[in-house]
Write a protein that binds this DNA or RNA. Structure first.
Lengths: 115, 115
DNA sequence: GGACTATATTCGGCTAGGCGAATATAGTAT
DNA sequence: ATACTATATTCGCCTAGCCGAATATAGTCC
């Protein structure tokens, strides 16, 4: 029985680290080093989860020189849109998200990234 | 790191069988034997997934004599409500759901269940 | 009591997936 | 070339969780 996109997406949301990354990307494109700085997650771990999200079709990658920028894919289906809504709404239910948001506001995170 | 309710709920939605069961329960309360008949899933497997959904706080159980009836919990948080919206919207993205719906309409599934 | 029914749980085996640590890749700079 | 930076991947280990098969529980009926 092959897995549906729906299953993959739910699964992607079910990990705490991935949820944090996805939530960060709600604000827009972000490079790996910013994600690592903000979440304080070891870099290989962040990259692994980003690869997972990429496979699930939830994010896209843009390579520029040495940097890799990720952003959420634009939601094509109503299902995908609702899922993003869930993401926004779980802010108060996941403890780490507040701390991430605070650190994100202090991190440059301009268009153009960590430079 | 303890798991949040959010994580548990997403995880609960990430299994195909559970998604089918949850989708059935959108129509209202249902007993295990109806779920088994409609989904054609082996009974122990259905019970196992129902136990999982119970732990995740997504459904509640009502025991009446020999029968066990399950229904969705009423969504308390905005997050939970959006998640249920996702459930409704993934109908066309998960192949089995159409067949389940067809069989559900042929099954009695009245208030009072399979009897 | 025994037989029957509906549901739940346990067991063993297998796979997915999480982690830290180490290493690889690849672009930039000198 | 070397050195440095950002990111990705691999490795080995461990846990969660899925499955079918078998068994247990528990309520009903005779």
């Amino acid at each position: 029985m092959p897995k549906t996109t729906v299953n993959l997406m739910f699964r992607a949301f079910s990990d705490r680290t991935r949820l944090r990354i996805l939530h960060l990307l709600l604000k827009g494109e972000m490079c790996v080093c910013d994600i690592v700085t903000i979440t304080r997650v070891p870099q290989p771990k962040a990259s692994r989860h980003l690869a997972y999200l990429l496979r699930a079709g939830l994010i896209v990658k843009r390579k520029q020189g040495l940097w890799a920028y990720y952003r959420l894919t634009s939601a094509a289906s109503p299902f995908h849109r609702s899922l993003i809504k869930c993401l926004k709404e779980c802010f108060r239910d996941v403890p780490e998200l507040a701390g991430d948001a605070k650190r994100a506001s202090r991190t440059c995170c301009q268009p153009g990234g960590c430079r």
